[in-house]
Write a protein that binds this DNA or RNA. Structure first.
Length: 566
DNA sequence: GCCGTTTTCGGCCCGACTGTTTTCAGTCG
């Protein structure tokens, strides 16, 4: 999305300016960095904001950066960036990607040894030239070689759902260390961002050294990157970086607050607090010299006169002000979910039978699960022909007689290229739940197709509305305002697809759609009973979009849901 | 370059770890 592109450019501009090293640019650099992060996490599409001349509503964006953004939207380029790029060696950003190398040292390497890319650097280290530079030594050369190795091994940020079980395993493993009292994963994982760069884990315990030794000695540790009394960083065998921080129990709250971030949330919170005479750090919240909060996060926020802010909201998008005014939403919680409204079975492209799916759903505490197998157009996914539906219905009816959970007769139909649905109305009306999704023609604006689907009285839910696959396929262009308006008018729910590769709608749009009073349904899009747990990711996504229980269809008991769907 | 319960000027979050240093700069989060 355009936000990511612009965020990257602004960040790179800051890096180049640091490289150039003009002292007068010190705070300009910081402003660019702040803006880059703010845009990366902004809950609004920049193109949309620019059109309405509302760019400066994003904290950190002023007149100068707003102009640059408008320039990029209009021309696809930022002139100043094009000029700055000419001032750095070709492999500059590649070199910066190496851990332990920043703009200052890249500059020395370039001016002293003419190093402009990773290959040059490897050679200079092999020749012993880097080690001989003032300020550099044998150790830093070795660090750089390790940094290159890590860069080549790691695949960048990973999907939340892909690291989920790894984090659970590491937490379970750390529990076995008898010096550890409390363990909580922090950072982007706790905020449930769609991707995570590394994993931060916070523990409390008396004997810091023993805990660090225990952690560093585990079989999943491939390499120790940093090891100290309060922080140890390792690389797992799969190339995932895990940072372990140890604090005393009485500092758990302030430390958890700090290590949960986001960076922008913390910077804003500290500035906010500083203006009121407080000083915040991971060791405590202080008013002057007096400690006013440190044991729990509630105590810390409370000391500032604020309500507790849920981790998913800590993106610096108005949550600090809302908390201070006691206007935060009461967020949806996992226990509010009574069923799953999007799941597949062996009837189409799933790996589990309806019975297996239903049994696991019951174990998760659900009252119902909708079995929404594909429709005929999706031949690759074994979509059901009309003639097969009766048999599937009979199976569901039989299972409903013997299982302690209600199985809903559902379907995920295709929205065809012209907006029609690929079952006729007299077939559609037999289903309990109809999810309508776009499964083809991704490279066009699909607003009209989806609007047409919403007009169909038998369509209850628009599945994965934007069609994106994280890191693989961009969302197709959509006029979101039109969709939200019509969804609200027709009572068509928008899906919050919980599958970790989709997470669609995104938090940005959930929040926007909520302003239009749209309804949502959360579906795991599971193709196996083993995937039903992904509902948690969908709940977290909904929370990141400020959604409350009343916004979500599948918080309703079946008897009420049935009426809403009709 | 951004921002405002002290401000349209004068500040800009705070600390750990590392390596190369005799007191600190660079990097990272």
């Amino acid at each position: 999305m355009i936000n990511q592109e612009i965020s990257e450019i602004l960040g790179k501009m800051a890096e180049i300016m640091e490289f150039l090293g003009n002292p007068a640019d010190k705070f300009r650099i910081r402003a660019l960095q702040n803006a880059a992060i703010a845009i990366g996490e902004a809950s609004d599409n920049l193109e949309l904001l620019a059109r309405e001349h509302r760019l400066r509503e994003i904290p950190g964006i002023g007149e100068g950066i707003a102009k640059k953004i408008e320039e990029y939207i209009a021309t696809g380029k930022i002139k100043e960036f094009e000029l700055l790029k000419k001032a750095v060696p070709k492999g500059f950003f590649e070199l910066l990607g190496i851990s332990s190398l920043g703009p200052k040292r890249v500059k020395i390497l370039h001016s002293e040894l003419g190093i402009s890319n990773i290959e040059d650097l490897k050679k200079a280290i092999a020749d012993g030239k880097v080690q001989a530079l003032p300020g550099f030594g044998e150790k830093s050369a070795q660090k750089m070689m390790e940094g290159i190795d890590i860069k080549e091994r790691s695949k960048g940020r990973r999907l939340l759902g892909e690291v989920y079980s790894t984090v659970e395993e590491i937490v379970e493993n750390l529990k076995k260390c008898k010096d550890v009292l409390k363990i909580v994963p922090a950072g982007s994982f706790r905020r449930m961002e769609e991707t995570v760069g590394d994993i931060d884990i916070l523990v409390t315990g008396k004997n810091h050294v023993k805990i660090m030794d225990y952690f560093a000695g585990q079989p999943y540790v491939h390499k120790i990157l940093v090891k100290g009394d309060t922080k140890t960083s390792i690389l797992t065998n799969e190339g995932l970086q895990v940072d372990l921080r140890v604090v005393d129990s009485n500092q758990f709250g302030s430390a958890l607050q700090y290590f949960t971030g986001s960076k922008l949330h913390n910077v804003h919170l500290r500035t906010f607090a500083k203006n009121r005479g407080f000083k915040l750090s991971e060791y405590g919240f202080f008013k002057g010299e007096e400690l006013v909060g440190s044991k729990t996060e509630e105590e810390c926020y409370g000391a500032l006169g604020m309500d507790y802010i849920e981790p998913e909201l800590r993106t610096d998008n108005g949550e600090i002000e809302a908390s201070f005014k006691h206007q935060l939403p009461k967020l949806l919680e996992p226990k509010d979910i009574r069923g799953d409204l999007h799941a597949h079975s062996t009837w189409s492209d799933g790996a589990s039978s309806i019975e297996e799916m239903a049994r696991r759903a019951h174990e998760q505490g659900y009252e119902y699960i909708a079995m929404t197998d594909h429709s005929p157009s999706l031949t690759v996914a074994g979509g059901l022909k009309i003639s097969e539906l009766k048999e599937k219905k009979r199976e569901i009816d039989a299972l409903n007689e013997k299982l302690p959970i209600k199985i809903l007769f559902g379907t995920e139909v295709d929205i065809l290229k012209d907006g029609r649905i690929d079952y006729p109305d007299e077939v559609l009306k037999e289903f309990d739940v109809v999810v309508a999704s776009v499964h083809g023609h991704f490279n066009q604006d699909n607003t009209d197709r989806i609007l047409a689907a919403m007009e169909n009285p038998f369509v209850h839910i628009i599945g994965h509305p934007s069609g994106r696959l994280i890191g693989q396929r961009n969302a197709y262009p959509l006029a979101y305002e039109k969709l939200f308006k019509r969804a609200s008018e027709t009572g068509t729910a928008l899906e919050i697809n919980a599958h970790y590769s989709r997470l669609d709608l995104q938090d940005v749009y959930i929040r926007e759609a909520k302003r239009w009073k749209c309804l949502f349904s959360i579906g795991s899009d599971s193709h196996s009973f083993k995937s039903l747990w992904m509902m948690q990711l969908g709940v977290a996504l909904a929370r990141r979009g400020w959604a409350e229980k009343g916004d979500i269809l599948n918080t309703l008991p079946w008897e009420k849901l049935k009426k809403v769907l009709k």
